[in-house]
Structures are given as C-alpha cells and as structure tokens.
Simulated assay, not measured.
Amino acid sequence: MSRKNVVFQKLVNTLLEHVKNHCKTGDYLPSDVSLATQFNVSRTTVRKAIEHLESLDLVRKMDAQKTLLAMPEAHHFFDVSQHSKPKEKLVEEHFISLIQSGKLKPGDKFSELELARQSDTSTVAVREFLIRFSRFGLIEKNPRSQWKMKNFDEAFVDQLYEVRHLFEMHSLSNFLQLPEDSDYWQELNALFIEHKQLSLKMDTDYEDFPRLDHKFHGLLQKAHPNQFINEFYDIISFVFHYHYQWDRSTERERNALAVQEHINIIGKMLMKDYHGATLALEKHLNTAKQSLKKTAIL
C-alpha cells in the first residue's frame, strides 16, 4: 500500500476516534482547515477522509457544514497494524511467507529490488535484513544485488543445535525461578491450554503449530530478555519451522509429535518440576535436531 493510502487510513481512524470521544449524533464537525491543522495533514487528505465517512453514512456534508449522523463502530476502522511494524519485520514476514508457500527453494535466486517491491518496503530495509540472515549461512550474496538460497548439511545442524541447547536451557532455568505471582506463569498456563486444544485438531489444523511454537519458545526468552539470544532465536525459528528443505508430506506427523512434547514440557514447568522439565526440553530439542538432519541428507 502506498504511503498516501496509509496516511489516509490513519486519518480516518483518528477522526473516528475523535468523534467517539468528543462528539454526539447531530453535532457539527470542525472545518477542513481546522481538522488539517489539528491532525497535521493536508486539506486534500481531510476532504477524502470526510468523503469516506459520508460513504459509511456516518457524516452528511452540505456545503461546508458536516453533520454527524451516527456514532462509529469497530468495523468502521481500518486495520493499520501492519503499517506500524518496522520495515525489516515486514520484509522478514514476507520472506518467510515465500518459503512457506514453496516459492523460494534451495538454489533459487532473487533480487533486493524484487523483494522490496513485494513487501512494500525499501531496498535498504531488505538489504539490512538479508545481510543479517546471510551471517548464518542460510543465503548468500551474488553480484548486482542478487541473492541465493543455500542448502545446509549435518555439520550446520549440529552447530545450530549446540547453541540452541545452550540458550534454551538457560532460558528454562531462569523461567523456573520466577516468583509465583509473575504474570509469565499465567501466560504459560494459557499456552498450555492452546496446545491442548490444538492437539485435538491436528488432523486439520497442524499448520498452526509454528505459531504456537514461536509463542512458547519466545515466552521463555521474554521472561529474561537478552538481546543477543532474542536475535539468534529469530534464526532458529526460521530454520526449524520455515526451512525450505522440509518434506511437506511429513509435516502433520512432525507437528503432532512436537505439540505433545510441548505439552509435556509445559506441564512439568507448571508443576515446578525442574528436573522433569529439563529432560522434556532436552528430548524436544533432540527430536528437532534429528528431523532437521533427515532433511539435510535428502
């Protein structure tokens, strides 16, 4: 979406919020000049926003007079959450979606300009994102702003596992030392329920697991933030859940097993069983490593 459309949508939302908080049905809205000054936008953008409110039957305009006909409701607002995300996050989400959909595979080449256009971001944001990922051997830089997806081998998996094991065990140990009244325990219990619910629908909803997996392992990191671990976990998540070498025919079985392993880990954590939780996490990490190794030798 263009920058102009983003400004327009945000202004509409701002106007609707202003109306909800300061107006009642039958009131007259301020002039275009006043609104433009108040919200720091052009009068042209204000006029387009008012026209939009007219199309929703919220406002009636006669000459310069604008009358509020009805109070706005939730469905009248634009969803602009996507536009508030950092550009690099937008690039990452689009890049991962290309891999999930099979549009990027080992050996495929792509350009910075192409990815920038597809993700509606800048080539600068794309380049920064790709450079960060290239440090881990997942992609490589070619001449003329071209990039290439890479295969990886068993040695890569072993090295990645060693670092992941170190970080995850550290985070688990810290989490289990949280005080009883920490809000993170409530988040963990909610995740336990989500996992239980998903486990009953794995035949049809198995593709929902990566989202839950990211929430669970992310929660372990969030309880004791460490910027270096957080950045590395983005790479781990990418490799283990959006890996372009996965055999999709076994995805349901892999995710079903992983859900049960998560349930076992979380259950032990909620019971404050430090030893049991550690062993359960050890088993889960080893399962993920062995699954990756199978794809590395295909």
Rank of each mutant, 00 (worst) to 15 (best):
M1Q: 05
V6G: 01
V6N: 06
K10A: 07
L16H: 03
H18S: 11
V19I: 15
N21S: 15
H22Y: 12
K24M: 14
T25K: 13
S31Y: 00
D32L: 13
L35A: 00
T37A: 07
T37E: 08
Q38A: 07
F39V: 05
V41Y: 00
R43V: 10
R47Y: 00
I50N: 00
L53T: 01
L53C: 10
D57L: 15
V59Q: 04
M62F: 14
L68M: 07
L68K: 07
L68E: 09
A70G: 05
A70S: 11
M71C: 05
E73W: 00
A74E: 10
H76K: 01
F77D: 01
F77V: 05
F78L: 07
S81W: 04
S81R: 15
Q82P: 05
Q82R: 12
K85Q: 15
K87N: 08
V91I: 14
H94S: 13
F95Q: 04
G102C: 11
K103D: 13
P106T: 09
P106I: 08
D108Q: 08
D108F: 09
E112A: 15
E112H: 08
L113A: 15
T121V: 14
T121A: 06
V126T: 07
R127M: 11
E128Y: 07
F129A: 07
F129H: 11
I131K: 12
R132F: 11
F136R: 04
E140S: 15
E140M: 13
R144H: 12
K150N: 02
F152W: 12
A155M: 07
V157Q: 01
L160G: 01
L160I: 06
Y161N: 09
Y161W: 12
R164Q: 10
L166G: 05
H170D: 11
S171F: 04
S173T: 07
N174Q: 09
F175A: 01
L176C: 12
L178C: 01
P179H: 11
E180T: 06
S182P: 10
D183C: 06
E187K: 14
N189I: 10
N189P: 06
L191V: 10
E194N: 03
H195T: 13
H195I: 08
L200N: 07
L200D: 07
Y206V: 08
R211L: 12
D213N: 09
H214V: 08
F216R: 06
G218Y: 03
L220R: 02
N230M: 14
E231M: 11
D234F: 11
I236W: 08
Y244K: 02
S249C: 05
E253H: 06
R254C: 11
V259W: 00
V259F: 03
Q260N: 09
E261N: 06
H262W: 02
N264A: 14
I265Q: 00
K272Y: 09
Y274A: 09
G276A: 08
T278N: 04
L279G: 02
A280F: 00
S291A: 15
K294D: 01
T295E: 04
